[in-house]
Simulated assay, not measured.
Amino acid sequence: MPLARYGIGDVVRHRLLDFRGVIFDVDPEFANSDEWYEAIPADMRPAKDQPFYHLLAENSDSSYVAYVSQQNLVLDEEGEPVDHPAIGTMFDGFDGERYTLKREHRH
Rank of each mutant, 00 (worst) to 15 (best):
F24I: 02
M44W: 14
W36M: 14
D27Y: 08
I40L: 12
F30I: 06
D49Q: 08
A39H: 15
R45D: 00
Q50N: 04
P41S: 08
I40V: 15
E38S: 11
K48W: 15
D49F: 15
L56A: 02
S33L: 14
D27M: 15
A47C: 04
A42M: 06
F24Q: 03
Y53K: 00
V26Y: 14
H54I: 01
K48I: 10
A42H: 13
W36F: 14
H54M: 02
A31G: 14
Y53P: 00
H54T: 03
N32F: 11
A42R: 09
D43M: 07
P28L: 06
D27E: 15
L55G: 03
P41M: 04
A39V: 15
W36N: 09
R45C: 04
K48H: 09
Q50W: 11
V26G: 05
S33D: 12
D25T: 14
K48G: 04
Y37P: 03
E29I: 05
F30D: 10
N32V: 07
I40F: 13
H54V: 05
E35V: 14
M44A: 05
E38V: 15
V26C: 07
P51T: 08
H54N: 03
D25L: 07
N32Y: 11
D49M: 05
P46G: 03
F24C: 03
E29F: 11
H54G: 00
Y53G: 00
D43K: 04
N32Q: 12
W36P: 00
H54P: 01
Q50R: 02
F24A: 02
D49G: 05
K48V: 10
D49Y: 12
D27T: 15
A57D: 09
W36R: 13
W36K: 11
D34N: 11
Y37W: 09
D43T: 01
Q50S: 02
E38Y: 07
D25C: 07
H54F: 05
A57L: 08
N32G: 13
Y53R: 00
N32L: 12
E58P: 00
P41F: 11
D43W: 13
F52R: 02
E35W: 03
E29M: 02
D25Y: 15
F24M: 04
F52P: 00
M44L: 13
A42Y: 13
A39R: 15
E35H: 03
S33N: 10
L55I: 09
E58C: 04
H54K: 02
P41Q: 05
F30C: 04
Y53S: 00
F52A: 05
M44I: 00
E35L: 09
F30T: 07
E35A: 10
A31W: 04
M44E: 02
F24P: 00
D49T: 11
S33Q: 06
D43H: 12
D25Q: 12
Y37S: 02
E58N: 01
P51C: 03
Q50V: 10
H54A: 02
D27R: 12
P46K: 01
D34C: 06
E38I: 14
Q50M: 03
H54D: 01
A47S: 07
